[in-house]
């Protein structure tokens, strides 16, 4: 088999590098997906989280070979959607974005939750975001923003 074939934000893509390369590095360096942030490279902060087949995964803990035949979505491929707009508005209304470094991962964690559970409880939101470290906000604004997005964006998920 030649190359690693996958869909990246809706586009068929073929990666010719090593199957052992880290998805996080490849997304940032080869495909210029700079929304994907490197916070620890150990799966402990969620700043690099992406969706693989709609499921939230830390891209620092994925080797390229594993994504062959899969579909990856980063914020670059999500930010034009109505769902993103609903989340963005909810975050803006509560000023839930401070330094911003955790936010792309946080948004995708919210999307992963809402696509599975359109009307989550606060506890479910907290669980869904529990792998995404934010040092700025104390989380309340972010958790409430996700709850508000679910309410305001009713029908989108």
């Amino acid at each position: 088999m030649n190359g690693i074939h996958f869909r990246l934000n809706g586009k068929d893509t073929c990666y010719d590098g090593s199957a052992a390369d880290r998805l996080l590095d490849v997304l940032r360096d080869t495909y210029d997906m700079k929304s994907v942030k490197c916070g620890c490279k150990e799966g402990e902060c969620g700043a690099c989280a992406v969706l693989i087949d709609g499921v939230l995964v830390n891209s620092c803990c994925v080797a390229m070979g594993a994504v062959d035949a899969h579909e990856i979505v980063t914020v670059e491929g999500y930010r034009e959607t109505a769902r993103f707009a609903a989340l963005s508005k909810a975050f803006a209304d509560l000023s839930a974005v401070q330094c911003g470094f955790c936010i792309p991962g946080m948004i995708l964690a919210a999307e992963a939750l809402l696509s599975k559970n359109a009307h989550p409880t606060e506890e479910e939101v907290r669980t869904a975001l529990s792998g995404n470290i934010c040092r700025c906000t104390g989380y309340n604004a972010i958790v409430n923003a996700v709850l508000n997005a679910a309410k305001e964006g009713d029908g989108l998920w």
Binding site: K34, V36, A92, I107
Partner: peptide, 21 residues
């Protein structure tokens, strides 16, 4: 009264350029 933060859009859209970007 709260306003939408000036850096909200670029940050949440992943367009903000941090030094490593």
């Amino acid at each position: 009264q709260s306003v939408k933060k000036k850096d909200h859009d670029p940050k949440i859209e992943g367009r903000s350029v941090y030094v490593d970007d």
